[in-house]
Design a protein around this nucleic acid. Structure first.
Lengths: 170, 170
DNA sequence: AATAAATGTTACAATACATAATAATGTCGC
DNA sequence: GCGACATTATTATGTATTGTAACATTTATT
């Protein structure tokens, strides 16, 4: 039986799986708590961004990295890792990948031969321009849900919450 | 050299690694966007809850599960999975573990011999009582940052964001 | 009765994330 | 300047979480 036929045949009061799931979750009362609603919101918003970046074979972490390299050319891997809360060993593969794609490059650090200075390539800068547009479109989807005042106070309140823990992870 | 000595010796304008990281992230402008601030806030809040539950060897998913079983005794694994956005195969191990711990139990479903009906054990109910207190304390930490009105509008606004994506994951 | 769908399960792949050890270089106290 | 220690990037490895495919059993459909 097709989904349409299934929908047609079920009575008005019957519920789909998703509706039942939502109802079941409601009965737990979790949706009345800041913490859990915050998690639901984050999950929805983040997956929207992930989807938006997918056509470019890019995850949010790539985007943040390009942004950082654009804002602070010549940064060391160490610094990038701290800013993005990525441990050094895990950063290596990420940079390897981006270097192979030709969007960033490692150079010898002028003052410290242990370190690499990281830079955007021209291709990286071009990709970043594209990604910024994608990100802006994503943010517009979010902002469409709020008035200017709401948006401002929301950001302020979320910032307060973010200060609860010292670590920030992008 | 000790950390104290290091702090003593560095000039007032010098920055620690974390401060530098935060500054570096600031220059990207990410903290001005709803999406990323939402992520930072979620990360901080969630890790606070995880830490609070740790002494009981419990992750948030265990807590949500106990809550659901308390609200809807006899639910099938399928239903739990949908409500918590956990795929069937992954749910099996989770329930196995909780059953071994003696906090939930599988029973034959009265109307469908394919299914298991899930119930809290007495131990599970007792644990849930403890966990609820831990969760309440966690929520109080969050609510201390807001007035009643702020809290209410925050939840309402986050709920709007959560509707962006159909899937909810606990 | 025959076919298809649903439920729980197992096995396995993929991914993200964390830890330990190492080589090269730099820093600090003496 | 020398020696002990710290730092940077790297490799290898382990772990935890999540997702996919296939299966047996039971139920639903036709």
């Amino acid at each position: 039986m097709s989904a349409a036929a299934k929908a047609k045949r079920r009575s008005p009061s019957a519920k789909t799986g998703k509706e039942r799931a939502r109802t079941l979750l409601e009965t737990t009362g979790l949706s009345r708590y800041v913490g859990f609603v915050l998690r639901f919101a984050h999950s929805a918003v983040w997956s929207d961004l992930v989807k938006a970046l997918q056509p470019y074979d890019v995850r949010p972490v790539h985007y943040s990295m390009l942004l950082i390299l654009n804002a602070a050319p010549g940064a060391r891997q160490q610094e990038i890792g701290e800013a993005l809360s990525i441990q050094r060993p895990n950063l290596v593969a990420l940079i390897d990948e981006m270097e192979e794609r030709g969007i960033v490059r490692r150079q010898p650090h002028p003052a410290d031969r242990r370190s690499h200075a990281l830079y955007l390539t021209n291709e990286g800068a071009a990709l970043l321009t594209k990604l910024k547009q994608v990100h802006q479109a994503h943010e517009r989807r979010l902002n469409a849900l709020f008035t200017t005042e709401e948006r401002q106070s929301l950001i302020e309140e979320l910032t307060r919450l973010a200060r609860l823990a010292p670590d920030i992870s992008v």
